[in-house]
């Protein structure tokens, strides 16, 4: 796990413009390699397991994780409401 720490530290220690550039570059490479997919070619993309949002079965997991960890949001789930006191 030490390696993953070093990698995240390396990334976060970079200055904001460099981080932004790396992220933008990654997104550009991804998007520029896009191909047009016809409707009849989307059988794999339409598979229920390919969903790009949270599934119903993950709902309680996301709820407890948002209470037990300081970070929340950017996961298409709830980002407020409810106590989570305990």
């Amino acid at each position: 796990m030490q390696n993953s720490f070093r990698l995240t530290n390396y990334f976060t220690n970079l200055t904001s413009p460099v981080r932004l550039l790396i992220t933008a570059g990654f997104i550009f490479i991804c998007l520029s390699s896009c191909t047009t997919v016809k409707e009849y070619q989307k059988n794999k993309l339409n598979d229920s397991e390919m969903i790009l949002s949270n599934r119903k079965i993950e709902k309680t997991e996301l709820s407890f994780l948002s209470y037990r960890e300081g970070a929340s949001g950017a996961n298409a789930g709830k980002s407020g409401g409810g106590c989570g006191c305990n």
């Binding site: 390699s33 191909t35 790009l52 950017a74 407020g80």
Partner: peptide, 28 residues
């Protein structure tokens, strides 16, 4: 009180791959 906004972009890369980029701005 919580006020928030979510901005997202989904992209089909090819017949096997799709990605989603999502950001929130949340004020409590």
């Amino acid at each position: 009180n919580t006020f928030g906004s979510t901005f997202s972009y989904n992209q089909i890369i090819n017949a096997q791959l799709q990605i989603s980029i999502l950001t929130d701005v949340i004020l409590q």
